[in-house]
Design a protein around this nucleic acid. Structure first.
Lengths: 131, 131
DNA sequence: CATAATCTACGAAGACTTTACTACGAAGAG
DNA sequence: CTCTTCGTAGTAAAGTCTTCGTAGATTATG
């Protein structure tokens, strides 16, 4: 009965940038998204509009057309998409090894003591949850 | 003095697939790469050839033309590229948070008890190394 | 009301990705 | 030596990604 949204595809670079804005801001108009994007890089209003239209077609965002200025929101929560991306890279580049992925991440960006503590705690929690 | 190879770009999906073969096999001819790729999916010989030519232009692989059948090898070790990819995703999708990345990876593919132990061990080693 | 501002839709250019066909030279087999 | 096999190079088609210009409708403003 419930017509589930089909699995949206892996977002591209530009799409991910826009999703990031939507996750941070919540539902937003093209104008709002554009204002934030434009702070970081030159981009025309219609470019953002077009991206959002395409993303709506792909199912990456949903849009509410009740108002004249349509309101867009990410169709999946940040965590869901992050899981997809992590799983995808894990399989494509790390042969499924979470350890290798973590090695890569730590090598790419040195972690602080606090972050390491967080990571350890995360593993603890996770073990509790699965056993 | 040393004319360093410029930083090669992030490999695409198809490129990563070929790099994976080269990392596993070491230097190889087009034919050897093709034989392995063709086991997993239908692909013409010249397709693999073309990919390798393009990858050589981009600096992702180096080629030795001394023999008639050129020999290709990854220009960067697997770990180096993994670090790039992990760092790239970390920044693009996880706002630099290694913790979030690990959460995503663990959610995407449940880790076994053994793997969790490995991860913990990795963090220990890493802390020793940095303090 | 007339004009300006705001919005969506459409179209399309240019770059990149992936795939495969064709051409042609070099090496190997009978 | 002739014919087949193996190899590279070049060309290009089809698809995707990213960007932006133009058009036309709707709303706000003087």
């Amino acid at each position: 009965m419930s017509a589930k949204t089909p699995q949206p595809p892996r977002p591209t670079d530009a799409e991910l940038e826009i999703l990031t804005v939507l996750w941070a801001r919540g539902p937003a108009t093209v104008r709002e998204v554009h204002e934030i994007i434009a702070q970081r890089k030159p981009a025309q209003y219609t470019t953002v509009l077009k991206m959002l239209q395409i993303m709506a077609e792909k199912g990456l965002v949903r849009r509410d057309e009740k108002e004249r200025a349509h309101i867009y929101q990410a169709s999946r929560p940040r965590e869901w998409t992050q899981r997809q991306l992590a799983g995808d890279l894990l399989q494509r580049a790390f042969n499924g090894s979470a350890k290798s992925l973590l090695v890569g991440a730590l090598a790419a960006r040195k972690a602080s003591k606090e972050e390491l503590a967080e990571l350890r705690k995360l593993l603890e929690e996770y073990e509790k949850g699965t056993q």
